[in-house]
Nucleic acid binder design. Structure first.
Lengths: 252, 252
DNA sequence: CGAAGCATTGACAGTTGTCAAAGATAGTGG
DNA sequence: CCACTATCTTTGACAACTGTCAATGCTTCG
């Protein structure tokens, strides 16, 4: 049994026959602000699909058939260079939107990382629905702006931060999005992707990622169970120690 | 007289008393698809402002009073880290939109690079106008998606490309946006920003940028007049030579 | 139990950053 | 109009961080 399989069809959705009112992503998805009228319109063009880990959701350069809200699970978005170098341009979590209604073709791949439950809307219908429901379009625009903010933030990470800071930033991102709270600043979570993928996300090599994680472990900033499960005793300390070039252990 | 002052109030706008129909950015701005009804609504909340080179247009962490279309000139968007490291997260050109109607506060600085003419819309009015004119909101959404694509593209540049490829990519970007056409693949243009700013855009140091430019000059991939004006005889060759790690001159 | 894939660690190399100095360029004021 | 100064750019020498190559260890799965 995989530790990462946190994304099975949520019980609440199964029991309720996939009613929006019980959807785990209800508060953060594109339908967050919808009134009952808008919700009915969305339900008409909606369907659910489950994706297995590593399964392709959307392929770059191919037609987009749907946009989809993530109900549960983690998705990675990847861009590939002609010579094979790859950059993960984002991870997407519960509530995030995959695909876009305005484009015929996808410009990057989207793959399930964990098991993923997706609430899909047929693309063209969704697009024309936006014109009739300005609130939904506004919500769509807000979510896109939020994606843009994330991308800008990541430009700083890739352009300015050291390897150590990059890894620390990555762990904090996960702590925010999928971490369990163990007190004010303590979090624990599974790293949903391989070291290889972390490297492609951070613009580093797999070896550098591995070394940085080992260093953080050695200095007590994080604890590991297996290679995937992380416990961060103090998020702030993790970021600080990575910014200042702290050497040696935590204790004087 | 500065070579860079390509952004004075365009004659067409002055003579026409700033009519939208004569606006140089008419085809690419947020008003691109507007009918006369929408255009009138926009004109009511519109005003023009000229910014001098280096002048601040929008300040991070401060209230946004307007969104603005660039009529002419170049704008840089900057994010600052607590310790002073900076990342230029984008350059904006004629037709691009600055600011966003959905946010109270700016999350990055916007500064004029050349002289800039901006067509401003008061933020709140613009925002409420979007609800009444879905076409305008759709256009706003499309432009935001396009910004997102650019940001994703730049993530690949920062995360995967070598110093040389980064500089080549940067020059090609300028060639696309502000280059004069001198035949199929030949372009010439002014680099609107300093080496320092180029470095902050590419996640490099000023010295590395300078060296890469010198190398390109030495191998005949570019020609320089002064430090700012560039002539690229062959855009494709510039990118190729940077991808393959070509050494030495152009001739065998 | 063996094989395959993933992760860690080590030794070394190379690209890029840092520090330093000299050369250009542009703007200012006499 | 020219000299002066501040800023920007280039170039060099060297250091350091990160990448490359290689070997070992760990985990999973058949």
């Amino acid at each position: 049994m995989s530790m990462l399989n946190t994304a099975g069809v949520p019980r609440s959705l199964r029991e309720a026959g996939m009613k929006c009112s019980n959807c785990p992503a209800r508060d953060s998805a594109v339908c967050a602000d919808c009134d009952s009228d808008e919700l009915r319109a969305l339900e008409k063009i909606r369907s659910f699909q489950k994706f297995a880990p590593a399964q392709e959701i959307i392929a770059a350069q191919e037609p987009i058939r749907f946009v989809g809200n993530i109900v549960s699970g983690v998705v990675k978005l990847t861009r590939l260079m002609a010579d094979g170098r790859r950059q993960i341009i984002g991870l997407r979590f519960k509530g995030d939107l995959i695909g876009r209604s305005a484009s015929e073709l996808a410009d990057h791949d989207a793959n399930a990382v964990t098991e993923v439950m997706l609430c899909k809307f047929r693309r063209k219908e969704f697009h024309s629905l936006l014109e009739r429901y300005p609130n939904v379009m506004q919500r769509n625009l807000d979510m896109t702006l939020s994606e843009l903010d994330d991308a800008h933030e990541w430009l700083v990470v890739l352009g300015q931060k050291t390897a150590r800071e990059k890894v620390a930033t990555f762990l904090c991102l996960l702590a925010d999005r999928i971490g369990e709270n163990h007190g004010r600043n303590a979090r624990s979570f599974d790293i949903p992707i391989t070291r290889d993928e972390v490297a492609d996300y951070l613009g580093l090599t797999i070896e550098t990622v591995s070394r940085q994680i080992s260093r953080m472990k050695a200095s007590g900033l994080i604890r590991l169970e297996g290679t995937r499960h992380v416990h961060v005793p103090d998020l702030a300390a993790l970021l600080d120690a990575s910014a200042g070039d702290a050497e040696g252990g935590v204790f004087p």
